[in-house]
Nucleic acid binder design. Structure first.
Lengths: 338, 338
DNA sequence: GTCCGTCTTTGAAACGTTTTCACCGTAGAT
DNA sequence: ATCTACGGTGAAAACGTTTCAAAGACGGAC
């Protein structure tokens, strides 16, 4: 089953290979009858142009890569979706890859993408990657950091203003009347987590008459939330927080489940705020108040920024930041029995 | 910023290109001192081998593709994850792509994967694809159909036994005492949906003294579930089903939310069973009884089957089927106030 | 009838890699 | 000192495509 190449097509159609290539890339340059013969030959041979050959000649492919820690996380999935939509509008295809939170696999995938000479690389990560991306850029592959504000001005990035998000979440908890508030999340070394905490503690500081407890839970999943919930239940009631700000929705849902099943009323006894506003925040039996980033806009911003970099256009604003919104739902409405 | 090639490395290291190639692919054939000079040259130039060049010469790359309708769906995400794990054990990388339920984009991505001469293609789809994959196979790219039993013996596939899953779900509802049961899902043209319904109605038929109503809801998301729930609430109470089997968990969670907020007690008034057992089934405030496929095993089975096809090994069992399990939780335990 | 311009077609070169094969130098055996 | 074996090296060909320069075909204007 030898692969069929452009040469076979040319022979069968009785034309030169150059003509077949023209048919594929500049259809206007080839006459109607030859076009038809070529079309027939392609169909009957099942010819599929080799990307390798084309790429070798052209020096680049029309693919971009998106490397995320975990595409199954609705947060990244949503971004991937909007990126794909925009990329398809601009005529490039997106290859997704999961780094699985492993730096080793992150590096491996970066290298694979480089080997494939993708036009550009989009990357979301839980750890700083500016230096690695700088090396990649030096070798010729531009990139956009997604979901995390880059700390160098050479590295374009698109992110949410997590400081503002944290501030909004915390202000809301204070507004509804919570005073002994717990921030749940981790590890604090992750920029997104640190920023949210920073915004939150800023809000508490300004408000004054409230306390902020930090519960470090690096496992930001439903399961991690269940653990935190159990730990809170084990405390005497007066030691429990009356407001909880979880660093993402999964965590918040887990916490909420344990508390409610343990007899703590949400939102009467404790108000809970999540982050990301994923599909399940709204679908929960006690719908979850959350912070929503408008990720649809992400796709356009990210892809367009990447193309600016690819085409070496002047980038006036390398760090695009989106402002998140607070979405109030039942998990905080009615705190204290109001 | 001209790309640096193997030739530049050879010049800087003062050796022939063939030697550099040997260093990369057959390190044992090159002497220690030249190896060191080459290593230095590669590092200082930032050389990344071009996949295009290599692939052109070799005729194939070490990449496989997984094309799914929607990687953000936990069901496919889990599969993708286990596939990636196994693939990485076998030394190939996986590129993911989202078809977004659009056949047009499905075809486009298939073609892109073919152009890239992936070693093989994994595909999940909501529609029959055997004929398209047959064409692809004829052109030289083997594939494995994932999550759907192929209807030809030439097309390898790995799937769950959805008929059995449907039967288990329904038997359980009958066991706990439900008699007026609704099956929610659609479109019925989708094999997975049809199979689950077929298993379910088989169980009802055998049992005898129960009715099965089919509620066609093609939007198998939380939102779709909310709609169905609202429709059920609008009925007079005696017209409502006392058992609901939703074709996936998202749908079930949406239905449950509307019903509970509308004053219907779950599981006392109505028992609900989902399908897929995703993370949120367990995390719901009323944890959801569901049907669980052991998708971890999927990865190994799928990738190994694909490699059998790639290496033209004799495939004795083209259709691997996994048996799903019933996971009983609060949404059915205690039906009727028991 | 000749010339010119336009439109189409052609063949060859080039892209970056791997592999094959021939060659060279060295070491060990005679 | 000569021969043999062998490991390491280098030059060149091949992979499939696109592009480019040049040649060819054709029709219209003089």
């Amino acid at each position: 089953m030898a692969r069929v190449g452009i040469r076979d097509v040319a022979v069968l159609a009785g034309v030169a290979v150059g003509t077949v290539s023209n048919y594929l890339n500049h259809p206007d340059r080839v006459s109607a009858d030859k076009a038809q013969r070529i079309r027939y030959a392609i169909d009957s041979l099942g010819f599929i142009p080799s990307n390798a050959g084309r790429q070798l000649r052209l020096g680049t492919s029309s693919v971009i890569g998106y490397l995320a820690p975990d595409v199954s996380n609705p947060y990244f999935a949503e971004i991937a979706e909007s990126v794909e939509r925009r990329a398809s509008e601009r005529g490039v295809t997106v290859f997704l890859a999961n780094s699985h939170r492993s730096q080793e696999r992150e590096d491996a995938y970066i290298e694979v993408f480089e080997q494939h000479r993708v036009q550009g690389l989009l990357m979301s990560s839980h750890v700083p990657v500016e230096d690695r991306l700088a090396r990649v850029r030096k070798r010729g592959t531009p990139s956009v950091l997604v979901g995390q504000r880059a700390r160098t001005s050479e590295q374009p990035s698109v992110s949410l203003d997590d400081v503002s998000g944290g501030r909004q979440a915390m202000s809301h908890l204070l507004d509804v009347g919570a005073r002994r508030i717990a921030f749940v999340g981790g590890p604090l070394g992750i920029p997104q987590v640190a920023d949210r905490l920073s915004g939150a503690s800023d809000a508490v500081r300004r408000f004054g008459a409230a306390t902020l407890e930090v519960i470090d839970q690096p496992d930001r999943t439903v399961r991690g939330g269940l653990d935190v919930g159990a730990a809170l239940l084990a405390r005497p009631a007066e030691m429990r927080p009356d407001g909880i700000f979880a660093v993402n929705d999964l965590l918040a849902l887990g916490i909420m489940q344990t508390l409610v099943l343990g007899g703590v009323a949400v939102p009467r006894d404790v108000a809970i705020v999540g982050y990301d506003d994923n599909e399940f925040a709204e679908a929960s039996l006690i719908p979850l108040t959350s912070i929503r980033g408008r990720h649809e806009g992400f796709g356009v911003a990210v892809v367009d920024l990447l193309f600016d970099a690819i085409e070496r256009r002047e980038i006036t604003e390398p760090h695009r930041m989106f402002e998140p919104d607070l979405v109030v739902r039942a998990s905080t409405e009615g705190f204290g029995g109001a």
